[in-house]
Design a binder for these strands. Structure first.
Length: 351
DNA sequence: TGTAATGATTTACA
DNA sequence: TGTAAATCATTACA
């Protein structure tokens, strides 16, 4: 170390008890330097401060001249390689150089999701599959579906656009910053020992930092897509009341089968077809109707009577038609073979 | 704007 | 797996 200090001094640098200072850059002492001499250290610090003050007092021209002198010094290439070697030995320049980044599972998940949703990768209709699935689940009319579909696609396309713009910005910033740092290090490598390996390491550090920013972007994009999906897929958020006609058909069936309001699978399918809704919507409707009817029969009594009358009229018409056609088989009356029609008490309770 | 109505979902159970 | 019951979230209406 003493030899190194002497060389530094000879080159016009500042020798500071084991620390070589050049243009504000300090080379730490190699391992093993204990520096336990208390008074000596105080003196060193005083020297350092003094030297720093001296440096700042120097004019730029003087500094440049010194720098030039250093660069042109015949010993410089030899010193540079020696210092590089020392740095290699101390492990400063190779620390972490071998760190191979394993693929981040979280990043992979984000990438996969963005790819699946059509946000990253080639545009594939902006999640039309998801939109179609949601539309089917919602059981809306085809016209409604196409409106929702295009709405979903438009919003997804917006997200995609923002994602790509931001990604491009990050990449540009990363490249600019990397170039800047590389130039800076190359420039500094003229006056302090920086090996190409070290520059590479620095570049990889920068890339790692920027990729973590990219991950945040991907994460927030995924969140936006999830919110969009949940809004689109959650049928409760876009509930539409069934058409009056559909409700009529369902009510007619319900009240004409009041004693056993449990339509078979076939009946459900038929009702679904008639009402232009799905079988599960029919099941939901009957589930809701049964529980609400049971809970408050009184409230539904009027409705029940109305539909009973309606059914009776329909049946009478059927009978009349049958008689007219001289047909022998009588029409099927509601509830025939099933539960008896409810008999209402004065309080509206079913007997 | 508050409230009733209503379609959908969730949970428990047979 | 279908249903009851409770609950949620939205719509319709006064």
């Amino acid at each position: 170390m003493d030899e190194q200090a002497r060389i530094m001094q000879a080159l016009g640098g500042v020798s500071l008890a084991g620390h070589s200072v050049q243009g504000g850059m300090a080379l730490p002492p190699p391992h093993g330097h204990d520096g336990t001499d208390g008074d000596g250290r105080k003196q060193d610090i005083g020297d350092i401060l003094h030297q720093i003050m001296t440096i700042t007092d120097q004019s730029l021209d003087e500094a440049q001249a010194k720098k030039h002198g250093l660069n042109c010094h015949r010993m410089k290439p030899a010193l540079f390689s020696v210092l590089c070697e020392i740095k290699e030995k101390t492990g400063l320049s190779i620390r972490g150089a071998q760190e191979e980044d394993p693929p981040d599972p979280q990043l992979m998940r984000l990438d996969n999701m963005l790819l699946a949703e059509g946000v990253s990768g080639p545009e594939k209709g902006g999640g039309s599959a998801a939109a179609a699935a949601a539309a089917a689940a919602a059981g809306g009319s085809p016209a409604d579906n196409s409106i929702e579909h295009s709405d979903y696609r438009a919003k997804l396309s917006q997200i995609r656009q923002i994602y790509h713009t931001e990604l491009e910005k990050y990449e540009q910033a990363c490249n600019e910053f990397t170039t800047h740092v590389m130039n800076l290090l190359r420039e500094q490598s003229r006056t302090r020992p920086i090996s190409p390996k070290e520059i590479e390491r620095m570049v990889s550090i920068i890339h790692r930092k920027f990729s973590s920013i990219q991950m945040q972007l991907k994460q927030s994009t995924c969140e936006a897509v999830m919110i969009l999906r949940s809004r689109f897929l959650d049928a409760r958020r876009k509930r539409r009341n069934f058409s009056k006609q559909a409700t009529e058909i369902l009510n007619e069936y319900f009240y004409s089968h009041l004693s056993n309001p449990y339509p078979s699978e076939e009946a459900k399918e038929e009702l679904a077809k008639k009402c232009s809704i799905t079988v599960s919507q029919v099941s939901n409707w009957f589930g809701n109707k049964r529980i609400r009817y049971k809970k408050n029969i009184g409230k539904f009594q009027e409705e029940a009577n109305l539909y009973a009358a309606k059914t009776a009229v329909t049946a009478a018409h059927a009978v009349a038609a049958a008689v007219q056609n001289s047909q022998t088989n009588s029409p099927t009356t509601p509830n025939s073979g099933g539960y008896p029609a409810p008999c209402y008490q004065s309080d509206g309770r079913i007997q």
